[in-house]
Amino acid sequence: MRAHPVRRTALTCAATVTVTVLVLSLKPHHPPAGALPPATTPTPSSGTGIGGTSSGTRTVTGPAVQTRYGAVQVQLTLDGSRIVAARAVQSPGGDPRSRQINASAVPALIRETLNAQSAHLDTVSGATYTSEGYIGSLQSALDRTRA
């Protein structure tokens, strides 16, 4: 049984409007410029630190973790057991799309690191490979602080 042409047209229009509204309601991939702190700016956190009782400031670098699009490597600065700064020593950037994605993903991961004070981070939507590599290098760096 075939739908009446007017009914089919109305259904097509309704579906088109619904899809358009859904697409327009999605959040942008990257935050506006200036919305994220610089890579080495500490962010306040209610966390208690990563454990351990070491005192003094030190820098620890995790290993480079190879991803589908390139290596990711994290360096942490700790004051005692608290992460006070994080930066990506390496991140994928061999092509314009990777550079664009990582321009917003890496600062978001750094901000999450400072807030969580651990490697228990959510992946950044649209930057799964970078997120997984970052988290792997971060966890290794944290493990080195406990060794």
Rank of each mutant, 00 (worst) to 15 (best):
L24G: 12
R111H: 13
T43G: 02
R58F: 05
L121R: 13
A119W: 12
V84H: 03
R68W: 07
P37L: 09
A33W: 06
D79I: 01
L22H: 09
T145M: 08
A119N: 11
P44A: 11
T16R: 03
V89I: 15
L142E: 02
I110W: 05
L114S: 11
P38A: 10
S46M: 05
Q100W: 14
S125L: 05
L76I: 03
I50F: 11
A147T: 13
T130D: 07
T113I: 14
L114V: 04
G133I: 02
V23N: 09
H30F: 12
V23W: 13
A108M: 15
R97W: 11
R82S: 02
G94T: 06
T12Y: 05
G133K: 08
S54D: 09
P44Q: 09
L36S: 11
R8C: 05
T77H: 05
L26D: 09
V21F: 08
Q139S: 13
S125F: 03
V23G: 08
R144I: 02
R146C: 02
P96N: 09
R146H: 14
I135S: 02
Y129F: 11
A103L: 04
G94P: 00
V72D: 02
R7P: 00
T16A: 15
A10S: 08
Y134M: 05
H4K: 11
L11S: 06
T57E: 13
G80Y: 05
D122T: 10
T128L: 05
V72P: 07
S140N: 15
A64H: 03
Q75S: 14
V84R: 07
A85N: 07
V74E: 01
G62L: 06
R8H: 06
V6N: 06
A15V: 12
H4V: 02
S55P: 00
G70Y: 03
S137R: 01
L114G: 12
T16S: 14
P32R: 08
R146V: 10
G93K: 09
G49Y: 07
P31F: 07
Q100S: 12
L36F: 11
I135A: 05
S98K: 02
A116T: 04
A10L: 15
S140F: 00
R58P: 03
P31C: 07
I101L: 13
V21H: 01
Q75I: 03
T61W: 00
G62Y: 06
Q117A: 04
A105T: 11
V19A: 15
T16I: 14
L78V: 14
H29R: 13
S46C: 01
P42E: 11
T43N: 00
T43C: 03
I110P: 04
H4W: 07
A127F: 11
T59Y: 06
T48P: 01
I50N: 11
A15I: 10
L109Y: 06
S46K: 13
C13I: 15
D143M: 09
G93Y: 00
G136C: 03
T145Y: 10
I83G: 09
Q75A: 12
T20M: 14
A3Y: 10
C13A: 15
R82W: 02
V23T: 15
G126A: 08
T67Y: 09
G62V: 10
V124S: 06
G52D: 05
Q139C: 05
T40A: 12
P28Q: 10
A14P: 12
R2W: 03
A15W: 04
T130P: 08
A35V: 03
L24A: 13
R99A: 13
A103C: 03
P32T: 09
R68F: 10
L138M: 03
Q100V: 02
Y129P: 00
